[in-house]
Every structure is written in C-alpha cells, then in structure tokens.
C-alpha cells in the first residue's frame, strides 16, 4: 500500500527564517501519527505544506498518492486548523452546510449526530461561540465527510476533559475504519493514548520517530508490592529489568525497565496483598531521549569544520 504522506527533503523558509528543513516523513495508511514538538517547531508549517496553504522552498511531497496542488485531493482530507477562526453572525449549522456542500455533501443526520456527541450547539452565531465551542465546530467539519485522511492541528486545545475523551474515541473509530490520522500536539500525553507512532520536531527538524508501543516497552515504571509477610530479598535480586530494589519487611519497591514478567512471576510465589504500579511517564522518556539526541546534534555541530 502506498503511504498516505510521503515527503523527501521537504523544506520551508519564510524569508531567511527556517520553518522546516529536510523533512523525510512517511505516514502509513490506517495509522494514527502523533506529531510532537514545542510551539514554533515546524508542526503547523508541515501541516500547511501538506494542504497546499503554503508552498515548499524545496523538496518533494505526496499526499494520498498525489501532489497536494491538485484541489481534488483536499476533498479526501479533513482538516482542523491550529488557529481556527470562525466569526460573524452566521450560524455554525449554516457554515457546516456550506463546507459540506463544497466537499460533495454530508447528510444532515451525520452533522447532528456529531454535534450531539460533542455537545455542540450549532444554532449560535459563530462570532459568539467560546473557544471550546469553536473547536467543536472545527472537529465536526473535519470529521463530518468521513475523509480518508484527517489532519488535526492541536485538536484538544480548549476542550474540556469529557469532550477530549469523546474526541479520542472518535479518532479510534477512524483508525478502526482503516482511515489515517495525523495529529499534532506539544505534549505527548495528549496523543499517547491513540497514536501508533509519534514524530518529534524541533527547530524545524524531525529529530525522532518512535513507535508508541515500543516506547511503552522501554518505559521505566515504578512498582510497589505489599505482601502478607516479610519476603527474602534474594528472591528478587538479579531479575531481568529490575533496578533500585528495596525490600523492607513485607514491602518491596523497585523500578522495572521493559517487561514486568519476571518480577510478577517471582512475586507470585508469595501472597500479594496490594500492588501499586505508576503509569509510565512517556513524556519523561521522550524528553530524556530527546535531550540525548539534542546533545548528539550539538556535538556533531561542534565537530563540523567551519
């Protein structure tokens, strides 16, 4: 199957300022790709290049197998801009009907169903909508025509936690239907629940692409066991992945790197009263990884002949 997005050396300069440089990115059909980076790193630049809102300085890209300059390809994409502007006296329902018409038609029931799901009121003039409600209208217009490819720039901004959960459920449904999603965020926590892979951009460059499942596997997590009686320390020493082991009477705590299997099997020989396992903080791993990468780049930079 051909990639949904394929870029090669994609570069964008705004005058002399670098927006994005030498991006080689592949997004595969049916995956949810999380696109991460701090503000101003080049996420929105990438997205706007893919939609032909801005034009590359150099490099090559294809979206859904075609050049994004072809307007027809945009009908197969759903797009939520990072800074969505909705204004005026027009009602959201009228605006959605207009967008739906241009994209080839969407049933009124579909729009109503999405609005109910996100608890959006479409009868209010758009200029009077709150930020969160504008974001809901933006999500509805991106999802309503069931596009093959969804591009969502900072989709969760302004949404309350319940709506955020509903939104993530919608993203999962899109993936389950075999369609593809690119969503950007400046924090990993927002995308780690739904993303299959994440890419990190910093200062206009893609510094890493990682599989989220692999990242989880690498994750270091803190575990505590409480037993009904004191346990011998030797039983737990030297288990694969177990570090920082502390045994104090009936309590055991450690961190595990990777799979917890060996530790669980060792603990199962005793009576476990209580188990605490903190959710691994992928963000932390990522940042560690990321700063190593940075340091590596910095060294490479120093070694380069002037």
């Amino acid at each position: 199957m051909t990639a949904v997005v394929e870029t090669e050396g994609l570069t964008k300069f705004y005058g002399r300022r670098r927006g994005l440089e030498d991006l080689d990115l592949e997004i595969r059909p049916g995956e949810v790709f999380g696109y991460l980076g701090p503000n101003g790193a080049g996420k929105t630049t990438t997205i706007r290049l893919l939609l032909d809102v801005i034009r590359p300085t150099r490099g090559r890209m294809s979206v859904l197998g075609t050049d994004p300059r072809d307007p027809r390809v945009r009908g197969r994409i759903g797009y939520l801009p990072g800074e969505l502007a909705l204004e005026g006296r027009e009602r959201a329902s009228e605006y959605l009907a207009f967008l739906a018409g241009v994209r080839g038609g969407v049933s009124r029931d579909r729009i109503t169903a999405l609005a109910e799901r996100l608890e959006a009121d479409l009868s209010v003039p758009m200029g009077r909508l709150s930020k969160g409600n504008k974001q809901k209208v933006g999500l509805i217009q991106a999802f309503m025509h069931e596009p093959e490819f969804l591009i969502l720039d900072e989709p969760t901004g302004g949404l309350d936690p319940l709506v955020q959960q509903e939104f993530l459920a919608m993203v999962r449904e899109v993936r389950a239907a075999g369609r593809t999603v690119l969503m950007s965020s400046h924090v990993l926590a927002e995308v780690e629940d739904v993303a299959d892979r994440v890419g990190i951009v910093r200062q206009g460059r893609l510094v890493a692409v990682e599989d989220v499942a692999a990242l989880r596997e690498k994750a270091v997590r803190r575990v505590e066991f409480h037993f009904d009686a004191p346990v011998p320390r030797e039983e737990f020493e030297g288990l694969p992945g177990v570090r920082d082991l502390r045994v104090e009477g009936a309590n055991l705590s450690c961190t595990i790197d990777g799979r917890p299997d060996a530790l669980i099997k060792a603990a199962a020989r005793f009576t476990v009263v209580h188990l605490v396992s903190a959710e691994p903080d992928l963000e932390e791993i990522f940042l560690t990884y990321y700063s190593e990468e940075e340091a590596h780049h910095a060294r490479a930079g120093v070694q380069e002949p002037a």
């Binding site: 945009r74 502007a85 967008l99």
Partner: peptide, 15 residues
Amino acid sequence: ESGTLELTVTLPIDR
C-alpha cells in the same frame, strides 16, 4: 487577516 481563509483554501476548490 482574520484567519477564516485558512479553511476556505483547503476546500477542494482550485485557488
């Protein structure tokens, strides 16, 4: 200037 053109140019309409 207001930003509403962003969505319009991403519609399947030739510029």
